[in-house]
Design a protein around this nucleic acid. Structure first.
Lengths: 206, 206, 206, 206
DNA sequence: GATGAATGAGTCTTCATTCAT
DNA sequence: GATGAATGAAGACTCATTCAT
């Protein structure tokens, strides 16, 4: 019965897909390993060959999920020059849109936002959320800095970067909690517009 | 032991307080009725005298919770004239701040934001969130309308009202999910500033 | 609030009626005191003023129930001469018919036949059944004795009396277990006919 | 621990045996799954691997139970010629005796006769009883028909068949409800004698 | 006499987890 | 690698019973 490594890997991915789906649909606490196994076409018992238990399965799901903003540069580099504010707004807006539209991303986001009750399961959830927030803020701050260098009062730059992060968080949370379908509503466009509305006035007017 | 009506009412409130706390601390699914009973100083069984079960207890908690924005006027009336944008920004900012600071409000908010998994328990959760969002948007739209009547492009007013709602949602979600303590961070002030930055430019400049 | 004795007695009867009904409908073990209280128009708590608990309520119901054959003479007396076999057959048949038709009797019988599981609740149930059986047998034996004195082999008389008892038991059990309505089927007449068929041949032919 | 198929089947039988015993001893409503598990040498939880719950366990017990009269021919066939009345009486009498003596049969019968309260659990109980009654009656009617063809008034044949059924029902019920031990009392012999007394006179005398 | 709030023991049921095969 | 039987702990819910009013 020994299968090649690729085969095993495929099974693990099927398992993660299933877990992702069930965790996001029913919520981690209510999700049953049997449901996950069913979706994956396996049995409860076999989950334990691949993962140590339910919490570890959750962590694996979380660790596998990569969001558009996870690749945002944290620093100005020669290889990857920073965009201007309009382009950044577009990138972030599209990130939101994609996250809400692409099933895997949407499910992963839904799991991460499942509330601080997951704290008791894995502190990695909160760490992941914090990391995402920090990354977005840092990126926005960098772009703002470059766009309007020197013209912003001390602290103002960070406040605006934070505002962008909060707004994105809100767009995501709202859509997921209220079940707004990503395909129909141009949430990404809204995000883009309001980043522009928020950042451009203070920049251009300088 | 039968007590006078007031005593019974106090017991129910104690029960709701306890449920609020335990539901928000551990999450609804993980919360044990025994914990709630313990916190309320009662026994598991007596919960069933007052409520039909765990879901009904959740609904009672949700129905009891009133947030600052639940009282926002949905229409312009003579008795209650609409404020200007700065005052509105202040009101909404303080609402966020109060919600994150006052324990009861914070817990209630935490429960409502516990993710769409609560859908399977009570559809009232989502209805409540939607209602809150609508109320805030309507209010903001009214104030914008009054402040800059006629000067906004069609649809622009609602878009901005929506943006305010999304931002507030984000501020709340972020603080609750990441466990930011309301007392230390001036989140309300940030909300206020964001609203001003978003709404004033388009108004005054008109 | 003090009511006269008659009033109290009426309440107790209402309670016993309710208990009789609920015990026979749902079965003793499944019957809830709340159901009984509801039917009686009282509350759970007040049952305890009249009876010590559920088992005692059952006993009270059993003790109140009187079946037609409970009055059968256990001995030949001058005041109450024994009937002939045909008249006895008629009496017993009518007893069965009445028990299956009259609601109170039917319910009581249903409770008594609820199986030996009631042993664990009150040994009075089995004692009652045994008593009924003995009484019927003794009576039948007396009547047989008188009708065909001397002509029956030793032991034969008791065997036939026992057979009559068993047949009546069967008619009752069958009707109650299978839910045959007393009003529509002439079960009593059947009992009568087969007592005749069983007893007359051996008597007359002698 | 997974064992071979035969082992699993043995476990199921052990479970059914245990359920049979506990259901008949304490009564279905009062029987605890824990007791059943204990008797079977398993744990409460494992019952749910094999059956969906308590009611389904009851049904499985009922469906497994086969009484002597379940094999009685429902029709005259060449392969299986009908017996005469004396032989039939002997067969039925022995059936009763065996049912009261053999532990499995006695327990199964005890469960079926546990009263119509089981209606609320599974309508299969009543259906089973009715089926048994019908089968016995049909068989007796066939034998009577063959023994005294043409000499019985219309309807008389069925009435006597019914009487036999009722008597058997009574013998069974009485023994079970009053706890008469099958080994000591010749109840089967009594049934046989009753049947003869009831059927032979009308046949031979014709 | 009656009520209804409160108790606490009892039981079903679920489900993560283990492990022989 | 995978299966499915079995475990055991945990939790929701029921209900007889108590008791202050």
């Amino acid at each position: 019965m020994r299968r090649c490594k690729a085969e095993v890997e495929r099974t693990r991915q099927r398992l993660l897909d299933a877990a992702e789906q069930v965790f996001s649909d029913r919520g981690y606490a209510v999700a049953r390993l049997e449901d996950i196994a069913d979706v994956a076409g396996l049995t409860r018992g076999s989950i334990y060959w691949h993962y140590d238990g339910k919490p570890e399965l959750l962590e694996a799901v979380i660790d596998r999920a990569w969001f558009p903003w996870d690749q945002l540069p944290a620093e100005q580099t020669e290889a990857q020059p920073l965009p201007g504010i309009p382009q950044m707004a577009s990138v972030l807006g599209q990130g939101i849109q994609q996250t809400l539209t692409e099933p895997h991303l949407r499910r992963s986001a839904s799991i991460l936002l499942q509330g601080h009750e997951l704290r008791h399961v894995s502190e990695r959830v909160q760490a992941r959320l914090q990391g995402m927030q920090k990354r977005i803020r840092r990126y926005v701050a960098l772009v703002i800095e470059q766009a309007g260098a020197g013209r912003l009062a001390f602290g103002e730059r960070d406040a605006r970067a934070r505002a962008v992060g909060v707004f994105m968080f809100g767009a995501l949370s709202e859509a997921l909690l209220l079940g707004l379908p990503g395909e129909q509503y141009p949430i990404g466009r809204e995000v883009e517009r309001f980043i522009l509305a928020l950042l451009l006035p203070g920049m251009e007017g300088g």
